[in-house]
Simulated scan of single mutants.
Amino acid sequence: MRHHDHRHDHGHSHDEGLETLRQALSAEAWNERYSGSDRVWSGKPNQRLVEQAKDLDPGTALDVACGEGGDAIWLARQGWEVTAVDVSEVALEKVAIHAEEAGVSRHLRIGLYDALSDPRPAGHRTFDLVTVSFLHVPIPDFNDIYRGIAEAVAPGGRLLVTAHHPHDVESGARHSHGDGLLFEPERVLEALGVGTDDSPWVIEVAETQDREQAMPEGPMKVRDTVVRLRREG
């Protein structure tokens, strides 16, 4: 349930701030960002994905908020049949080009995903692996979006969530882009009801992990939230 502040001025300010955060997730915002550069990201797969998926038996995979496709292409190269979804049509065009260049286009399909319009990234389809890396959404939208993403995990399949940890803002490694956008493993577990009597989820990994990241001012230690769950069934 969303909290409504009945004090007029504060509530108005809160609503404006929330709308600003949501606008940052829009197709318009991301199309503009991806149009401004040949490559926004490195093209390399995320370190946490490689660590967590390298020993899994390939099957079907869904890469949520895929960006320019670094993770999706890596998965396809490992033998996965991949569906890559993102809110940005510009990003998806780049995914298609990069997949062709990498020789994996036959094993990778793309699709639009607007988390705020419909939190389910692939309708009622399910996958052996659903991975979502660094999708930071406003607190009032978090549970709906991550539950929608989790619905795409097939029985016996896995959900992998990687995120920036709030510690990075406290340490000065990152600027805050909005209150509560960065999150700990516990927020994912609570959103999905992990640990409750009727939960279908088994925790395989739920921890914070440090790594070194190249920054404009030089290498800096950052902290990631890493959650890997298996759906029983």
Rank of each mutant, 00 (worst) to 15 (best):
E32V: 13
A163E: 01
Q52C: 04
E93N: 12
V50K: 08
E89I: 09
G43K: 05
H164P: 01
V202D: 14
R7M: 13
L189E: 10
M220H: 12
R223D: 11
E207Q: 07
K221N: 10
G193T: 06
Y146F: 12
R2M: 08
W74G: 08
V82E: 08
G156Y: 13
P58K: 01
G111T: 00
E81H: 14
E204M: 04
G11H: 09
W80I: 09
P166V: 07
L181D: 02
F142Y: 11
T196A: 06
S37L: 12
D86C: 07
L18E: 11
L108G: 05
A53E: 04
I97A: 14
G123D: 01
R22K: 08
M220Y: 09
I139S: 11
S26P: 15
S117F: 12
E151I: 02
E151A: 10
G103K: 09
V205L: 14
S42E: 04
V87I: 13
L160E: 07
Q78T: 02
A76G: 08
H8P: 15
G157C: 10
Q209C: 03
E28A: 14
T208Q: 01
A65R: 03
D168R: 03
S37K: 15
R231I: 05
R39K: 15
D9V: 14
S35V: 09
A84I: 08
G43H: 07
P138E: 10
T225S: 08
V169R: 04
F142N: 07
T131I: 07
H165A: 07
L18D: 10
G123T: 03
E186L: 15
R223L: 14
V40K: 14
L25Y: 03
A84M: 09
S37R: 15
V104S: 05
M1E: 06
L116Q: 02
W30E: 09
D168K: 05
V188T: 09
V222P: 03
R120E: 04
R106A: 07
R106K: 11
W74D: 06
A96Q: 05
E93W: 00
A173G: 01
H165L: 08
V202P: 13
D63T: 06
D128K: 03
H14K: 14
H3E: 09
D63H: 10
V95N: 13
H175R: 02
S37P: 12
V95S: 14
R48V: 00
D168V: 02
H8Q: 15
W201P: 15
V227E: 05
E151C: 13
R231W: 00
D38R: 15
D38W: 08
A27Q: 11
A91C: 14
L229S: 07
R228K: 15
